[in-house]
Design a protein around this nucleic acid. Structure first.
Lengths: 208, 208
DNA sequence: ATCATCGTGTGGACGTTGTCCACATCGCGA
DNA sequence: TCGCGATGTGGACAACGTCCACACGATGAT
């Protein structure tokens, strides 16, 4: 029960797991290279056999968090028996669901969220080896939702290119405001209402 | 020319100035308590006579950055001889100007922007002594722009309460995406176009 | 079957950081 | 004139990321 599988074997995976634990509360700053190695019961320098430096480990953790995020975002899509029957409305509400899922994850796991996409402002200089966001699972969900909106006819194809950015901007900004910003500490119900309003606003704004 | 005014006198102000220099490039992480004191030519511990800890200094720097931000946002409001003559359109375009000014500042001074409002994700735990955003100058500009929109009749008073958050979310999120995110490195012209589209989308979204 | 090799983990060290403690100093008011 | 309180100093401690040289242990070639 102590540590059977590795000591040999899959360090690196173990370090990433430790990184997930550490960043879950405390965000990127809580990921210490020494602390992570300590948790898996290994010398600090052992990490350097698998990661160039602390930032590389952070990047690997970020990639895992993105997957967790996409999983959680796929879940609450259980608005199966929707109220409005039209496929039009369904396409629009799918985009809304994706956006709300993004925000929901951010609020439930603020530490992970801070790690997910970008180098924490000020930690990495400018050029970091983070996973390209074009392949990030949550981003792909957004792209698909927008695409089905245009095939459903609720989004003008001429407005489609680049529509990702207003959408992502709004939900990401809202999450930031709600976690570190002035909306922090608001009752969950009010937060939810504001989130719905924000998402609705940006969706109709993109549609016009 | 070396350092006449203090050595006695206005340390604290000098430390904040040093903090501004340090954070301008490098963001919050570049602000070191030791480095700041080194720059003003004083012992590291001298700082503790004026700030409880590093985070307190960062907070003071953040407050100053907010003022700089408001100044810069007030400038490009020079769309005096506007194209559309109606006061309605002017109120709407004022909100747009505020939003674009926010983004513009963020792009020109990414280091300062990262410091301006919130504790960098992961640097401060959760409860930080940052300036309350309700009094932050840029926020007040947003509030006033929205208020004049309702007096101008272009914003339904019933939609007014809470309209700050969708707006702020969109511009803040866009700035984040453009600085650390997938939009980083895009040519300034395209970035500008996307910013305008994002701001326009959220404004019409809030109006409906 | 022996041995060299290479991937992996260890131990020690260096320079840096934030923060605490006790001590020094300087100016202002009694 | 003297002392006191505000301000700055010096030294120390623990923690961090990172580099170096070294030690293990399985693996493939001889």
């Amino acid at each position: 029960m102590t540590q059977r599988p590795y000591h040999h074997g899959n360090l690196r995976a173990a370090l990433v797991d430790a990184g997930l634990e550490l960043t879950r509360e405390g965000g990127p700053g809580a990921l210490g290279l020494r602390e992570a190695t300590r948790r898996v019961g290994v010398s600090p320098n052992a990490a350097y056999r698998h990661f160039a430096d602390r930032d590389a480990l952070l990047g690997a953790v970020a990639a895992r968090v993105q997957e967790l995020m996409a999983d959680r975002m796929a879940l609450p899509a259980g608005s199966g028996a929707a109220s409005s029957s039209e496929a039009d409305e369904q396409a629009r509400s799918r985009l809304i669901t994706v956006g709300l899922g993004y925000i929901e994850f951010a609020l439930e796991e603020p530490g992970w969220f801070a790690v997910a996409f970008f180098p924490a402002p000020g930690s990495a200089p400018a050029d970091s080896p983070y996973r390209s966001p074009a392949t990030a699972p949550p981003f792909r969900m957004l792209v698909e939702a927008l695409d089905t909106m245009v095939t459903a006819g609720v989004l003008d194809p001429r407005a489609r290119p680049g529509a990702e950015w207003p959408c992502w901007s709004a939900v990401h900004g809202f999450a930031e405001l709600a976690i570190h910003g002035p909306l922090r500490g608001l009752p969950a119900a009010e937060l939810r209402a504001l989130a719905e309003r924000t998402v609705a606003a940006i969706v109709t704004g993109v549609q016009t």
